[in-house]
Nucleic acid binder design. Structure first.
Length: 276
DNA sequence: ATATGGCCCTGGTTGC
DNA sequence: TGCAACCAGGGCCATA
């Protein structure tokens, strides 16, 4: 599932393809989801605008748009959330449009930007910036938050550290894979109450999370299920997973079998020996 | 305010 | 082999 490293990879590859291009025409599917903004409003806002740049904010992909004819200032941003199975693909028009395609933006360069999402957990929205304020995600950025602020996030919290890592209003961008992997690297049992972890252990978790996210970005993300970047290229970080989806397999450190339980409604993978 | 659980949706997997 | 039941899971919403 797309988390911070996958979203960053997609945003960067889309940016390389579409930056500076004009949106010539827009097609949107007839489904209610994934549209958070009405289809007519979205079509109007996107058509004939130029894509200034594409970047990641939390798990959201942000398209900075400039109004038609260069008359308008930065008028709106197009926000794409990939959900579970969302993909953004840049394709030649003659390439068949995949099943479950919900948006097709024809670009001045001749290619099409397509949003495809089988499960429809993804979201497409328009963000109108007031006073130049760009779209902001709900929580703090794991890659730039200071160690002190990271520790403070969990103070007094009774929920498990796994659930806390998944809570996007605290940190945004971390999902099930990187929550499990960072807890393994930090040696922390996912069930531990977030507010009861020592400052030292939280600092370790912060470092572990940053290292893992940065390495995953370098490797183009984790391709489990069907994640690919805008060119259809898969990532390689899944080969580095120590616990995620390795239930019953030997721990790469101590050899004991990886265990699985459900926390916060999510499959949670850990080593009972290496994580206390 | 904080935390929990159900729900959405389809494709892949499992089981008979 | 074929088909149906089951399950995964990010974010949102209702509820405790």
């Amino acid at each position: 599932m797309p988390e911070l490293p996958e979203v960053e990879t997609v945003a960067n590859s889309v940016n390389a393809h579409v930056r500076g291009q004009q949106i010539v025409s827009v097609w949107l599917s007839r489904y209610k989801e994934p549209f958070k903004t009405s289809r007519t409003e979205m079509t109007e806002a996107l058509t004939a605008t130029r894509i200034e740049k594409v970047y990641r904010e939390g798990k959201h992909i942000v398209f900075d748009l400039h109004g038609p004819g260069g008359a308008a200032r930065k008028s709106a941003q197009w926000i794409v959330h990939l959900g579970m199975t969302g993909r953004l693909l840049v394709s030649a028009p003659e390439v068949p449009v995949p099943k479950h395609t919900h948006a097709v933006l024809a670009l001045s360069g001749g290619r099409e930007l397509r949003f495809v999402d089988a499960r429809r957990f993804g979201r497409l929205a328009l963000h109108r910036s007031e006073g130049g304020a760009g779209f902001r995600g709900p929580g703090r950025e794991p890659l730039t938050i200071s160690p002190e602020d990271f520790v403070a996030l969990f103070r007094g919290r009774k929920l498990s550290i796994k659930a806390a890592l998944l809570n996007q209003t605290l940190l945004h961008g971390v999902g099930n894979i990187y929550a499990d992997e960072s807890l393994f690297r930090a040696g922390i049992r996912p069930t531990r109450a977030a507010g009861k972890l020592s400052r030292e252990r939280l600092l370790r978790l912060h470092a572990a999370l940053k290292e893992i996210l940065q390495k995953a970005i370098k490797l183009g993300g984790s391709s489990v299920s069907d994640y690919v970047d805008a060119d259809g290229v898969a990532g390689f970080f899944q080969l580095e997973h120590n616990v995620y989806l390795r239930t019953g397999e030997p721990c790469r450190v101590c050899g004991r079998p990886i265990r699985r339980l459900v926390l916060a409604g999510r499959g949670t993978h850990y080593c009972a020996h290496c994580q206390k």
